[in-house]
Design a binder for these strands. Structure first.
Lengths: 306, 306
DNA sequence: TATTCAATTAAGGTTGAAATTAATGCTATC
DNA sequence: GATAGCATTAATTTCAACCTTAATTGAATA
C-alpha cells in the first residue's frame, strides 16, 4: 500500500525539473531518489515517471498518483491543522518571508522571541527582495510593506506606516530649501523602482490643502531599498521611504525629514496569510507577538514621552 | 505530520475494545500499542483517547482523527486499487472466505494454483461456517452456496449447482423404496438447519409435473454440513444436499441418489464481491481461475465421457 | 484476599527503510 | 574530443521507528 510518505516524496519529484533537482530539494543524494522511486514503482507494479533526457514525463499512472496524492496529502495537512488549532500548545513549523531591511530589523527579533516562548515550534525566516511575489503556498506568512493587490489573498495589517520624504543634513544644507512639494522638481530625487510601478509620481497630502502631485525627475533609480538609503545617507538626493526603514537614521540625525507637514500615501506593514497554514495557531500567535512588538510605534512613543 | 501509518494504526485501535485487544489485532505486544499511541499524541500535542477501565473513549479530537483518518485511508486504498487495475501483473493481498466443505475441496486447490501462477500476490483463505454473514469489508471475495439476500451486494455465479436427495445404500436397502416425494414423509429425514431458514419444507420439481412440497419430520438436525453428511453415510437417513458436496460420495457409491427425476431448488455456487477490493485485478483473475476449475462440472463430465 | 487483566513505564534489542559512497553509461554542450 | 550534469547500479552503512521483555500499578472479580 502506498504511504503518505511515498505520496509526499512523489509530490516533491513532480514539482522538480529532474530527479537530481528533486534530490537537492529533499537534501539527499541523487541515488536515494532513484532508488526510492524505483522501489515505489516496483511495489505498485506501475511505472510512474518516464525518465528521459531533459526533464521528467509523468506516465498516465504518474499523473493519477500526483493528483490523488496531492489531494490526500492536502487532507492530511488539513487534519493536522485542525488538530493543531485545538492543541493548547504552540507547535509545528512556521515559515515566514519578509523584506530585507524590515525583516532584519523588526521581524528577526520577534522570531527569536517567538522561538524562545514556544520551544516546540520551529521557525524559518527568509528575507527576500519582493516577498509578496513569492508563491504563497510555500509560506505561512509573508510580511510586506505598502500597497498590494489583495485579490485572492488574506491580508492583515500589522502596523501603520507612513512614508516620508528625507534627505541628509549635508544635502539640505547645500541645496535650496523645500517648502512646497513642487519645489522637489528642482531637486535631485532618488526613485525606488519596484514591481514596475510608476515611481516618478510622488503624491503629497496636507490637512486643509489640495493633494499635490509631483512628477519628479529621478537622477538615480534602483530596485533595492538599501542602496537607495545609502545614496540618501551620502547626500545624493531626496528619497521617499517608509518610516520603519528610516527610523534609525532619523533618530540619529543621519537623515532629516523634509516637508514635515505633508504626508505621502501610507504603506502599512501587512502580513499575507498563506492559504494553508496561515491561520494556524502558531501563525496567529506569531502575528500577535509581531503586532505587540510594533506597537506602540517606537519613535512616536519616544517623541511623546518626556 | 500524521502519516498514513499513524492513521491506519489509530483506525485499528478505534475498532478495538481495548488497547490490549488492539495489540492482539496488530499482532504486537500491549506496550507497543501504548507507546505508539502515546508518541502520536505527543507529536500532535492532543490527547486522542481517554483510557479508562472497561473500554476506550475517544476524545473529540480522537473522533476527528478517526473520521478523517478513515476517509484518508480510504482515498489511499482507492488510489491503490486504481493503480492495481492498471498494472499488468497480478499482485496485492487477496482475502477469500468460503464454507468449510466446499472451501476445502474446491477453493483450496484453486488458491494453490493462483499462488503458483502469481507469485507477487498473497492469498488468505478462511473457511467458516457461514461466510455470507461475515462483514463484507474484511473480505475481497466470499464464496457461498445457495440462495442469498443479494441486497446491497455484488454477486457473480461461479457454477451451477443442483441439490439432490441422497441416502446410503444400506439405508435404501432397509427401507421402503421412494418413488414419489410424498413417500419421504415415511422416511427418516435429516435436516441442515442454517440461517434460521425453514428447512423442514423440501420442494421438488419434475418436468411436466406440478411442484411437490413435502413437510418432512426431521429425525435429526444440525447446522453442520459435515455432520449431516456423516449421518447419511452411516445410513441414518435421507438428506438433501448440493451436488458439489456429495459428488465424491456418489461417485464412490457411498451414497445413492433417490428421486433422480425430481429436482430440488438450485443452490448455485456464487461469489460475493467485497465493496472495496472485490473488483481488483487479482480478484477478477482468481474468479476466472475458479470458474475454470469448476467447469466443466467434474462428475457430469465423467458421466458424459466414455 | 487472592487473582486476573488492562495499561503503563523503563530498558534494551532488531531490522529494514533509506541514506551514503563509488563507479558507470549517457546525452548535450562547449 | 572534452566536459559537465543526469540517471542508474551496486555495495555498505546508518539510524530511528518499532519491537520486546520485565516489572509496576490499579481496578474488577471470584
Amino acid at each position: 500500500m502506498l504511504s503518505s510518505d511515498d505520496l509526499l516524496f512523489f509530490g516533491t519529484i513532480t514539482a522538480s525539473a529532474s530527479l537530481a533537482d528533486a534530490a537537492r530539494q529533499l537534501n539527499v543524494s541523487p541515488p536515494a531518489v532513484t532508488q526510492r522511486l524505483k522501489a515505489i514503482e516496483q511495489r505498485i507494479g506501475v511505472r510512474l515517471i518516464d525518465r528521459s533526457m531533459r526533464g521528467l514525463v509523468l506516465t498516465d499512472e504518474g499523473e493519477l498518483v500526483a493528483a490523488e496524492g496531492a489531494a490526500i496529502i492536502d487532507a492530511i495537512e488539513r487534519l493536522d491543522d485542525r488538530l493543531e488549532r485545538r492543541s493548547t500548545s504552540v507547535r509545528g513549523k512556521l515559515r515566514i518571508a519578509a523584506p530585507y531591511g524590515f525583516g532584519r530589523d523588526y521581524v528577526g527579533p520577534v522570531v527569536g522571541e517567538f522561538a524562545r516562548l514556544h520551544p516546540e515550534a520551529t521557525v524559518t525566516l527568509e528575507l527576500s527582495d519582493h516577498p509578496a511575489t513569492l508563491s504563497s503556498d510555500s509560506w505561512d506568512l509573508v510580511i510586506h510593506i505598502g500597497a498590494l493587490n489583495t485579490v485572492g489573498r488574506i491580508v492583515t495589517t500589522l502596523a501603520p506606516n507612513h512614508r516620508i520624504a528625507c534627505a541628509s543634513p549635508s544635502y539640505i544644507a547645500e541645496h535650496p530649501s523645500i517648502i512646497e512639494p513642487d519645489d522637489l522638481q528642482q531637486h535631485r530625487c532618488l526613485a525606488l523602482r519596484e514591481n514596475n510601478e510608476d515611481v516618478t509620481l510622488w503624491r503629497f497630502t496636507k490637512a486643509k490643502c489640495d493633494p499635490a502631485t509631483v512628477r519628479i525627475k529621478p537622477v538615480m533609480a534602483t530596485n533595492d531599498g538599501a542602496v537607495m538609503r545609502n545614496w540618501a545617507l551620502a547626500g545624493l538626493g531626496v528619497i521617499v521611504r517608509s518610516e520603519w526603514d528610516l527610523a534609525g537614521d532619523i533618530a540619529a540625525g543621519r537623515l532629516v525629514r523634509i516637508l514635515p507637514d505633508w504626508q505621502c500615501p501610507d504603506a502599512d506593514v501587512v502580513a499575507l496569510l498563506g492559504a494553508r497554514h496561515g491561520r494556524s495557531r502558531r501563525a496567529t500567535v506569531f502575528l500577535e507577538l509581531m503586532r505587540a512588538s510594533l506597537h506602540p510605534v517606537p519613535w512616536r512613543e519616544a517623541g511623546r514621552g518626556t
